[in-house]
Amino acid sequence: MTSSISGAETPDTPTGAIRVTGRIATPARVAVAGIPVLLILITPFLPFAATPTLWWGVPAVLVWMAFNVVLTVALLNVVDAGIRRQVREHGESTPAESAIGGEHA
């Protein structure tokens, strides 16, 4: 923890964990996180987006975008789990976890 200008303590930057564990943004993690982005970008070219189609009584595009939101959250959780496993394998907790006494404190 470092002191800011106002005197309040601020958490240190997580560079220590990055320095010990290596790259956080690996090509595989970026590719996994990019899947929903690609699906959102191709939405206008999908057939159901150009026609007034209903899925379960809701416009198909809204259902598709809701699916993409859920997929984004799920894939970012997978990426986060990989980062946490990488940090744990190198025997060092992140500064945020050590500041509050661990992940499940």
Rank of each mutant, 00 (worst) to 15 (best):
L54M: 07
V61Y: 01
L62K: 06
L75Q: 11
L62H: 12
R84C: 06
P47H: 02
F45S: 14
A66L: 12
W56P: 10
V73S: 10
F48T: 00
V78D: 07
L54V: 04
V78E: 09
G82P: 15
L76I: 13
N77G: 14
A81L: 15
T72L: 13
N77D: 10
P47D: 02
V78F: 15
G57W: 05
V61S: 04
H90N: 09
A74Q: 07
N68L: 00
G91T: 08
A66H: 04
W56E: 15
M65N: 07
I83H: 08
F67E: 03
V78T: 14
A74V: 14
V87M: 14
R85W: 06
L46S: 04
L54A: 12
P52E: 12
H90W: 07
A74I: 10
V78H: 14
V79P: 11
T51I: 06
T51L: 13
Q86M: 12
A74D: 09
L62D: 14
A81Y: 10
V70E: 08
R88L: 08
P59N: 02
V63T: 02
V69K: 06
E89I: 03
R84S: 10
Q86Y: 12
W64G: 01
L71V: 05
D80C: 08
L62Y: 09
P52F: 05
W55P: 01
A49V: 00
T72K: 09
V70L: 15
L76Q: 09
W55L: 09
A81N: 05
N68I: 00
R88I: 04
F45G: 12
L54D: 05
V63N: 02
V58A: 00
M65C: 10
F45M: 06
F67L: 07
T53A: 08
P52A: 11
P52L: 03
L62G: 10
L75A: 11
N68M: 04
P47V: 01
